[in-house]
């Protein structure tokens, strides 16, 4: 069993409800994401929100990203040190931090169709993101080149989004949000419509991203259960409880506790298959 412990809370969803035409779409959603600490490893967090089509995953995605305001409740995120009004020392880093309501722009968002500005070349689009990152000031071009090389996109920097394949567009979206420097990366159906080879690449890419910083947190909203579970440390199942109008988190599965997180070839294990079966039963 891998040794790990939980650190400070990075994201907290409290009593979140969302209504549409007076109908509750998302009801009383509560969950939190904590910093996972593994000795000797810079380990980020990978969390999956799984649910059937039409259950409200996209609404939850939009609310988490700050693009849509919830009707009730709130989403709190760990604020960066220089913007916090009330500072408390972090147990892990010793630096001041706090939780504050999420705003659009707090999270890196990767949309399902990897949307990019059609009028900007890839390099220009990446620069738009890099300029938002204070830590890259004066080094934006170097960072773009470095990421592009790392993600195999050096040759397409001068091209427009329409000239790229779906896989390349996805990588551009990921780099763009990484350059922006947000700790949170929210991905809407990142495995949808990918062939097996590309899927493997995307999975290793996401794992690589999750290891890039201690606080880097990937929130994957997906209906592809096996792939999402294979790379996650925690799974939240969005479903409907008996007698409840809207959707809520019906189950939380701690994959670390089950020894199913950060394991290579985890999909071949018997426990993994059992977990998938368990998740399917909850949907």
């Amino acid at each position: 069993m891998t040794i790990y412990s939980r650190g400070e809370t990075l994201l907290q969803v409290k009593d979140l409800s969302l209504y549409y035409d007076n109908k509750c779409i998302l009801c009383d959603i509560n969950f939190s994401i904590d910093d996972i600490i593994r000795p000797g490893i810079q380990q980020g967090q990978v969390v999956s929100v799984i649910g059937r089509s039409g259950i409200g995953k996209t609404q939850l995605f939009r609310t988490l990203s700050g693009l849509q305001q919830p009707d009730k409740g709130q989403i709190l995120v760990r604020a960066s040190q220089d913007t916090t009004p009330f500072k408390a020392p972090s147990l892990r880093t010793g630096l001041p931090w706090t939780l504050r309501p999420v705003h659009a722009g707090d999270m890196g968002v990767i949309f399902q169709n990897y949307y990019q500005f059609g009028w900007r070349t890839i390099e220009q689009s990446l620069r738009l993101a890099a300029h938002r990152n204070k830590t890259l000031k004066g080094m934006e071009n170097d960072a773009i080149k470095e990421y592009a090389a790392q993600f195999g996109l050096s040759d397409v920097l001068k091209r427009y989004p329409r000239q790229l394949s779906g896989g390349q567009q996805q990588r551009v979206s990921i780099i763009q949000q990484l350059l922006k420097g947000s700790d949170f990366l929210l991905l809407d159906e990142p495995f949808s419509g990918l062939d097996v080879c590309v899927l493997d690449k995307v999975v290793s890419l996401l794992l690589k991203v999750s290891l890039s910083h201690e606080f880097k947190t990937l929130i994957i909203v997906s209906h592809d259960i096996p792939t999402a579970v294979a790379i996650s440390d925690t799974v939240f199942i969005l479903g409907k409880k008996d007698g409840q109008e809207g959707s809520t988190i019906v189950r939380t599965i701690d994959l670390m506790e089950r020894g199913l997180a950060w394991e290579k070839n985890v999909a071949e294990r018997k426990e993994f298959a059992e977990t998938i079966r368990e998740i399917k039963l909850c949907l």
Binding site: S65, G66, A104, G105, F111, Q116, R132
Partner: peptide
Amino acid sequence: TNAQEFELCQTLGY
């Protein structure tokens, strides 16, 4: 205008 254009801009922190 595609709403995603504004949304992408917003998510980039603009």
